[in-house]
Design a binder for these strands. Structure first.
Lengths: 153, 153
DNA sequence: GGCATTTGGGTAGTATGCTAACGATCAGCA
DNA sequence: TGCTGATCGTTAGCATACTACCCAAATGCC
Protein backbone atom coordinates (compact mmCIF):
# COMPACT_ATOMS: atom_id res chain seq x y z
CA UNK A 1 0.00 0.00 0.00
CA UNK A 2 1.43 3.32 -1.07
CA UNK A 3 1.76 6.23 1.32
CA UNK A 4 -0.53 8.31 -0.87
CA UNK A 5 -3.48 5.96 -0.46
CA UNK A 6 -4.08 7.06 3.14
CA UNK A 7 -3.80 10.79 2.44
CA UNK A 8 -7.04 12.78 2.74
CA UNK A 9 -6.30 14.51 -0.56
CA UNK A 10 -6.07 11.22 -2.42
CA UNK A 11 -9.14 9.76 -0.72
CA UNK A 12 -11.14 12.87 -1.55
CA UNK A 13 -10.16 12.63 -5.21
CA UNK A 14 -11.27 8.99 -5.24
CA UNK A 15 -14.57 9.92 -3.58
CA UNK A 16 -15.16 12.52 -6.25
CA UNK A 17 -14.29 10.07 -9.02
CA UNK A 18 -16.78 7.54 -7.64
CA UNK A 19 -19.41 10.21 -7.10
CA UNK A 20 -19.18 11.49 -10.67
CA UNK A 21 -19.20 7.97 -12.04
CA UNK A 22 -22.32 6.99 -10.06
CA UNK A 23 -24.07 10.14 -11.26
CA UNK A 24 -23.15 9.64 -14.91
CA UNK A 25 -24.15 5.99 -14.84
CA UNK A 26 -27.57 6.82 -13.44
CA UNK A 27 -28.13 9.54 -16.03
CA UNK A 28 -27.15 7.13 -18.77
CA UNK A 29 -29.62 4.57 -17.48
CA UNK A 30 -32.29 7.29 -17.59
CA UNK A 31 -31.32 8.05 -21.17
CA UNK A 32 -30.12 11.54 -20.22
CA UNK A 33 -26.96 13.44 -21.05
CA UNK A 34 -26.48 15.61 -17.98
CA UNK A 35 -23.58 16.09 -15.59
CA UNK A 36 -23.75 16.70 -11.86
CA UNK A 37 -22.57 20.28 -12.35
CA UNK A 38 -25.37 20.88 -14.82
CA UNK A 39 -27.85 19.41 -12.33
CA UNK A 40 -26.60 21.70 -9.56
CA UNK A 41 -26.99 24.68 -11.90
CA UNK A 42 -30.58 23.70 -12.73
CA UNK A 43 -31.45 23.41 -9.03
CA UNK A 44 -29.87 26.78 -8.26
CA UNK A 45 -31.79 28.42 -11.11
CA UNK A 46 -35.01 26.79 -10.00
CA UNK A 47 -34.52 28.19 -6.50
CA UNK A 48 -33.27 31.60 -7.74
CA UNK A 49 -34.82 32.46 -11.09
CA UNK A 50 -33.46 35.53 -12.84
CA UNK A 51 -29.95 35.54 -11.34
CA UNK A 52 -26.94 36.26 -13.50
CA UNK A 53 -23.99 33.95 -14.20
CA UNK A 54 -21.70 35.38 -11.55
CA UNK A 55 -24.35 34.87 -8.86
CA UNK A 56 -25.01 31.35 -10.13
CA UNK A 57 -21.28 30.64 -9.96
CA UNK A 58 -21.22 31.73 -6.31
CA UNK A 59 -24.28 29.65 -5.42
CA UNK A 60 -22.70 26.40 -6.61
CA UNK A 61 -19.06 27.33 -5.94
CA UNK A 62 -17.60 27.61 -9.41
CA UNK A 63 -15.61 30.26 -11.18
CA UNK A 64 -17.37 32.40 -13.77
CA UNK A 65 -15.56 30.90 -16.75
CA UNK A 66 -16.65 27.35 -15.91
CA UNK A 67 -20.24 28.50 -15.37
CA UNK A 68 -20.17 30.27 -18.73
CA UNK A 69 -19.46 26.95 -20.45
CA UNK A 70 -22.00 25.06 -18.34
CA UNK A 71 -24.72 27.60 -19.17
CA UNK A 72 -23.76 27.44 -22.86
CA UNK A 73 -24.48 23.72 -22.84
CA UNK A 74 -27.71 24.06 -20.84
CA UNK A 75 -28.91 26.70 -23.30
CA UNK A 76 -27.97 24.44 -26.22
CA UNK A 77 -30.12 21.69 -24.67
CA UNK A 78 -32.99 24.16 -24.25
CA UNK A 79 -33.06 23.67 -20.47
CA UNK A 80 -32.10 27.26 -19.63
CA UNK A 81 -32.95 30.62 -21.20
CA UNK A 82 -30.34 33.39 -21.19
CA UNK A 83 -31.02 37.01 -22.02
CA UNK A 84 -29.32 40.31 -21.45
CA UNK A 85 -30.55 42.13 -18.36
CA UNK A 86 -31.92 45.47 -19.58
CA UNK A 87 -31.16 47.07 -16.19
CA UNK A 88 -27.51 45.98 -16.36
CA UNK A 89 -26.38 45.27 -19.87
CA UNK A 90 -23.24 43.48 -18.67
CA UNK A 91 -25.29 40.76 -16.99
CA UNK A 92 -27.16 37.74 -18.38
CA UNK A 93 -30.44 36.88 -16.73
CA UNK A 94 -30.90 33.14 -16.45
CA UNK A 95 -34.04 31.08 -15.96
CA UNK A 96 -35.18 27.51 -16.51
CA UNK A 97 -37.21 26.87 -19.64
CA UNK A 98 -40.42 24.86 -19.29
CA UNK A 99 -38.54 21.84 -20.52
CA UNK A 100 -35.77 22.49 -17.96
CA UNK A 101 -38.27 22.81 -15.11
CA UNK A 102 -40.05 19.61 -16.15
CA UNK A 103 -36.80 17.68 -16.42
CA UNK A 104 -35.61 18.96 -13.04
CA UNK A 105 -38.76 17.79 -11.25
CA UNK A 106 -38.21 14.35 -12.69
CA UNK A 107 -34.51 14.41 -11.78
CA UNK A 108 -34.58 15.58 -8.16
CA UNK A 109 -35.85 12.30 -6.63
CA UNK A 110 -33.45 10.31 -8.81
CA UNK A 111 -30.46 12.38 -7.73
CA UNK A 112 -31.49 12.21 -4.09
CA UNK A 113 -31.75 8.44 -4.39
CA UNK A 114 -28.33 8.02 -5.96
CA UNK A 115 -26.59 9.91 -3.14
CA UNK A 116 -26.87 6.68 -1.18
CA UNK A 117 -24.87 4.76 -3.80
CA UNK A 118 -22.01 7.26 -3.66
CA UNK A 119 -21.07 6.28 -0.10
CA UNK A 120 -21.31 2.52 -0.58
CA UNK A 121 -20.39 0.30 2.34
CA UNK A 122 -21.39 2.82 5.01
CA UNK A 123 -24.34 2.42 7.36
CA UNK A 124 -26.96 5.17 7.57
CA UNK A 125 -25.35 6.44 10.77
CA UNK A 126 -21.92 6.49 9.12
CA UNK A 127 -23.27 8.36 6.10
CA UNK A 128 -24.74 10.93 8.50
CA UNK A 129 -21.41 11.20 10.31
CA UNK A 130 -19.58 11.65 7.01
CA UNK A 131 -21.97 14.37 5.88
CA UNK A 132 -21.64 16.18 9.21
CA UNK A 133 -17.85 16.17 9.00
CA UNK A 134 -17.85 17.14 5.34
CA UNK A 135 -20.21 20.04 5.91
CA UNK A 136 -18.17 21.36 8.81
CA UNK A 137 -14.85 21.20 7.02
CA UNK A 138 -16.12 22.59 3.71
CA UNK A 139 -17.58 25.53 5.61
CA UNK A 140 -14.33 26.05 7.50
CA UNK A 141 -12.28 25.75 4.29
CA UNK A 142 -14.65 27.72 2.07
CA UNK A 143 -12.26 30.60 1.50
CA UNK A 144 -9.37 28.23 0.82
CA UNK A 145 -11.18 27.19 -2.34
CA UNK A 146 -10.49 29.17 -5.49
CA UNK A 147 -14.24 29.47 -6.12
CA UNK A 148 -15.85 29.78 -2.69
CA UNK A 149 -19.52 29.22 -2.03
CA UNK A 150 -21.32 32.57 -1.96
CA UNK A 151 -24.89 32.00 -0.78
CA UNK A 152 -27.43 34.77 -1.23
CA UNK A 153 -28.69 36.42 1.99
CA UNK B 1 -29.70 26.87 1.83
CA UNK B 2 -30.18 24.89 -1.34
CA UNK B 3 -31.07 21.20 -1.29
CA UNK B 4 -27.87 20.41 -3.17
CA UNK B 5 -25.62 21.78 -0.44
CA UNK B 6 -26.36 18.82 1.85
CA UNK B 7 -25.88 16.14 -0.83
CA UNK B 8 -22.79 13.95 -0.42
CA UNK B 9 -21.97 14.39 -4.11
CA UNK B 10 -21.86 18.17 -3.78
CA UNK B 11 -19.91 18.09 -0.52
CA UNK B 12 -17.38 15.72 -2.06
CA UNK B 13 -16.87 18.02 -5.03
CA UNK B 14 -16.30 20.92 -2.63
CA UNK B 15 -13.82 18.85 -0.62
CA UNK B 16 -11.92 18.06 -3.80
CA UNK B 17 -11.94 21.71 -4.85
CA UNK B 18 -10.52 22.76 -1.48
CA UNK B 19 -7.99 19.94 -1.51
CA UNK B 20 -6.66 20.85 -4.95
CA UNK B 21 -6.52 24.51 -4.03
CA UNK B 22 -4.58 23.87 -0.81
CA UNK B 23 -2.11 21.70 -2.75
CA UNK B 24 -1.62 24.23 -5.53
CA UNK B 25 -1.18 27.09 -3.11
CA UNK B 26 1.51 25.22 -1.18
CA UNK B 27 3.36 24.31 -4.37
CA UNK B 28 3.26 27.91 -5.46
CA UNK B 29 4.70 29.04 -2.16
CA UNK B 30 7.51 26.51 -2.68
CA UNK B 31 8.10 27.96 -6.14
CA UNK B 32 7.06 24.70 -7.80
CA UNK B 33 4.73 23.96 -10.68
CA UNK B 34 3.35 20.54 -9.76
CA UNK B 35 -0.18 19.20 -9.39
CA UNK B 36 -1.40 16.62 -6.89
CA UNK B 37 -1.84 14.08 -9.67
CA UNK B 38 1.76 14.60 -10.74
CA UNK B 39 2.86 14.17 -7.12
CA UNK B 40 0.93 10.89 -6.81
CA UNK B 41 2.57 9.65 -10.01
CA UNK B 42 6.04 10.50 -8.70
CA UNK B 43 5.36 8.60 -5.46
CA UNK B 44 4.05 5.57 -7.34
CA UNK B 45 7.11 5.55 -9.60
CA UNK B 46 9.42 5.90 -6.63
CA UNK B 47 7.79 2.88 -5.01
CA UNK B 48 7.55 0.89 -8.28
CA UNK B 49 10.37 1.83 -10.64
CA UNK B 50 10.19 0.39 -14.14
CA UNK B 51 6.41 0.00 -14.39
CA UNK B 52 4.56 0.96 -17.56
CA UNK B 53 1.87 3.62 -17.96
CA UNK B 54 -1.08 1.25 -17.66
CA UNK B 55 0.24 -0.11 -14.36
CA UNK B 56 0.89 3.41 -13.12
CA UNK B 57 -2.66 4.35 -14.06
CA UNK B 58 -4.00 1.46 -11.95
CA UNK B 59 -1.81 2.34 -8.98
CA UNK B 60 -3.20 5.86 -8.69
CA UNK B 61 -6.67 5.16 -10.14
CA UNK B 62 -6.59 6.99 -13.43
CA UNK B 63 -7.41 6.00 -16.97
CA UNK B 64 -4.55 5.46 -19.39
CA UNK B 65 -5.25 8.57 -21.46
CA UNK B 66 -4.99 10.92 -18.48
CA UNK B 67 -1.78 9.22 -17.32
CA UNK B 68 -0.31 9.61 -20.80
CA UNK B 69 -0.69 13.37 -20.53
CA UNK B 70 0.58 13.49 -16.94
CA UNK B 71 3.69 11.52 -17.89
CA UNK B 72 4.22 13.78 -20.91
CA UNK B 73 4.42 16.76 -18.57
CA UNK B 74 6.63 15.00 -16.03
CA UNK B 75 9.02 14.01 -18.82
CA UNK B 76 9.01 17.59 -20.13
CA UNK B 77 10.03 18.75 -16.62
CA UNK B 78 12.80 16.13 -16.55
CA UNK B 79 11.32 14.46 -13.46
CA UNK B 80 10.57 11.13 -15.16
CA UNK B 81 12.38 9.11 -17.83
CA UNK B 82 10.32 7.14 -20.36
CA UNK B 83 11.71 4.51 -22.70
CA UNK B 84 10.34 1.71 -24.78
CA UNK B 85 10.49 -1.65 -23.01
CA UNK B 86 12.62 -3.89 -25.24
CA UNK B 87 10.81 -6.99 -23.95
CA UNK B 88 7.40 -5.54 -24.87
CA UNK B 89 7.63 -2.85 -27.50
CA UNK B 90 4.06 -1.68 -26.82
CA UNK B 91 4.96 -0.62 -23.28
CA UNK B 92 6.87 2.38 -21.92
CA UNK B 93 9.11 1.79 -18.93
CA UNK B 94 8.96 4.67 -16.49
CA UNK B 95 11.40 5.73 -13.77
CA UNK B 96 12.21 8.85 -11.79
CA UNK B 97 15.18 10.86 -12.98
CA UNK B 98 17.74 11.93 -10.37
CA UNK B 99 16.13 15.32 -10.34
CA UNK B 100 12.70 13.71 -9.89
CA UNK B 101 13.90 11.59 -6.98
CA UNK B 102 15.52 14.59 -5.31
CA UNK B 103 12.44 16.73 -5.71
CA UNK B 104 10.20 13.97 -4.37
CA UNK B 105 12.22 13.57 -1.19
CA UNK B 106 11.85 17.27 -0.59
CA UNK B 107 8.14 17.17 -1.38
CA UNK B 108 6.94 14.22 0.69
CA UNK B 109 7.11 15.95 4.10
CA UNK B 110 5.52 19.07 2.63
CA UNK B 111 2.62 17.14 1.15
CA UNK B 112 2.12 15.16 4.34
CA UNK B 113 2.03 18.43 6.27
CA UNK B 114 -0.55 20.04 4.01
CA UNK B 115 -3.01 17.14 4.40
CA UNK B 116 -3.89 18.71 7.72
CA UNK B 117 -4.95 21.98 6.05
CA UNK B 118 -7.30 20.19 3.67
CA UNK B 119 -9.67 19.17 6.50
CA UNK B 120 -9.73 22.51 8.28
CA UNK B 121 -11.97 22.88 11.29
CA UNK B 122 -11.83 19.22 12.29
CA UNK B 123 -10.10 17.92 15.41
CA UNK B 124 -7.45 15.21 15.09
CA UNK B 125 -10.02 12.61 16.13
CA UNK B 126 -12.48 13.88 13.54
CA UNK B 127 -9.85 13.80 10.81
CA UNK B 128 -9.13 10.20 11.76
CA UNK B 129 -12.84 9.38 11.65
CA UNK B 130 -13.16 11.03 8.24
CA UNK B 131 -10.21 9.09 6.85
CA UNK B 132 -11.58 5.82 8.21
CA UNK B 133 -14.97 6.40 6.59
CA UNK B 134 -13.42 7.60 3.34
CA UNK B 135 -11.13 4.60 3.10
CA UNK B 136 -13.95 2.17 3.73
CA UNK B 137 -16.31 3.67 1.21
CA UNK B 138 -13.70 4.17 -1.51
CA UNK B 139 -12.74 0.52 -1.14
CA UNK B 140 -16.39 -0.55 -1.29
CA UNK B 141 -17.03 1.67 -4.30
CA UNK B 142 -13.76 1.00 -6.11
CA UNK B 143 -15.37 -0.79 -9.04
CA UNK B 144 -18.03 1.88 -9.38
CA UNK B 145 -15.26 4.24 -10.46
CA UNK B 146 -14.41 4.39 -14.16
CA UNK B 147 -10.73 4.03 -13.32
CA UNK B 148 -10.56 1.70 -10.29
CA UNK B 149 -7.53 1.39 -8.07
CA UNK B 150 -5.49 -1.64 -9.15
CA UNK B 151 -2.75 -2.25 -6.57
CA UNK B 152 0.07 -4.61 -7.44
CA UNK B 153 0.21 -7.88 -5.44
C1' DG C 1 -20.19 65.83 -14.98
C1' DG C 2 -15.78 63.35 -15.02
C1' DC C 3 -12.92 59.75 -13.74
C1' DA C 4 -11.11 55.72 -11.19
C1' DT C 5 -12.66 51.48 -9.60
C1' DT C 6 -15.41 47.55 -9.68
C1' DT C 7 -18.09 44.10 -11.83
C1' DG C 8 -20.11 40.72 -15.56
C1' DG C 9 -18.87 38.12 -19.25
C1' DG C 10 -15.71 36.67 -22.52
C1' DT C 11 -11.11 34.65 -24.83
C1' DA C 12 -6.87 32.10 -24.55
C1' DG C 13 -4.31 28.83 -22.33
C1' DT C 14 -3.43 24.80 -19.23
C1' DA C 15 -4.46 20.43 -16.67
C1' DT C 16 -7.67 16.77 -15.21
C1' DG C 17 -10.61 13.02 -16.38
C1' DC C 18 -13.26 10.58 -19.13
C1' DT C 19 -15.23 7.74 -23.86
C1' DA C 20 -14.57 5.75 -28.31
C1' DA C 21 -11.75 4.18 -31.57
C1' DC C 22 -7.32 2.91 -33.72
C1' DG C 23 -2.59 0.86 -34.82
C1' DA C 24 1.12 -1.82 -33.05
C1' DT C 25 2.33 -5.56 -30.56
C1' DC C 26 2.14 -9.60 -27.84
C1' DA C 27 0.16 -14.07 -26.02
C1' DG C 28 -2.38 -18.18 -26.52
C1' DC C 29 -3.81 -21.76 -29.19
C1' DA C 30 -5.04 -24.84 -33.04
C1' DT D 1 3.02 -21.37 -38.38
C1' DG D 2 -0.94 -18.61 -38.62
C1' DC D 3 -4.93 -16.68 -36.51
C1' DT D 4 -7.59 -14.63 -32.64
C1' DG D 5 -8.01 -11.99 -28.95
C1' DA D 6 -6.07 -9.08 -25.47
C1' DT D 7 -3.16 -5.25 -24.16
C1' DC D 8 -0.29 -0.67 -24.50
C1' DG D 9 -0.26 3.69 -25.98
C1' DT D 10 -2.23 7.22 -28.68
C1' DT D 11 -5.52 10.46 -31.11
C1' DA D 12 -9.85 12.90 -31.23
C1' DG D 13 -13.46 14.71 -28.77
C1' DC D 14 -15.95 16.43 -24.75
C1' DA D 15 -16.76 18.54 -20.01
C1' DT D 16 -14.96 20.32 -15.86
C1' DA D 17 -11.97 23.74 -13.40
C1' DC D 18 -8.87 26.93 -13.09
C1' DT D 19 -5.49 31.56 -14.22
C1' DA D 20 -4.59 35.71 -16.63
C1' DC D 21 -6.25 39.05 -19.24
C1' DC D 22 -9.46 41.96 -21.77
C1' DC D 23 -13.71 44.74 -23.04
C1' DA D 24 -17.98 46.81 -21.87
C1' DA D 25 -20.77 48.62 -18.55
C1' DA D 26 -22.09 50.16 -14.01
C1' DT D 27 -20.82 52.38 -9.56
C1' DG D 28 -18.76 55.49 -6.36
C1' DC D 29 -16.55 59.52 -5.35
C1' DC D 30 -15.03 64.15 -6.03
Amino acid sequence: MSIVHAMPGFLIRRLNQISMSVFQERMQRLGLDLTSVQFAALVALSENPGIDQATLAGLIAHDRVTIGGVVDRLVAKDLVARRINPQDRRARQLALTDSGATLLQRLIPEVQALQHDILAGLSAAEVAAFVTLARRTTEAGNDRSRAPLRPRD
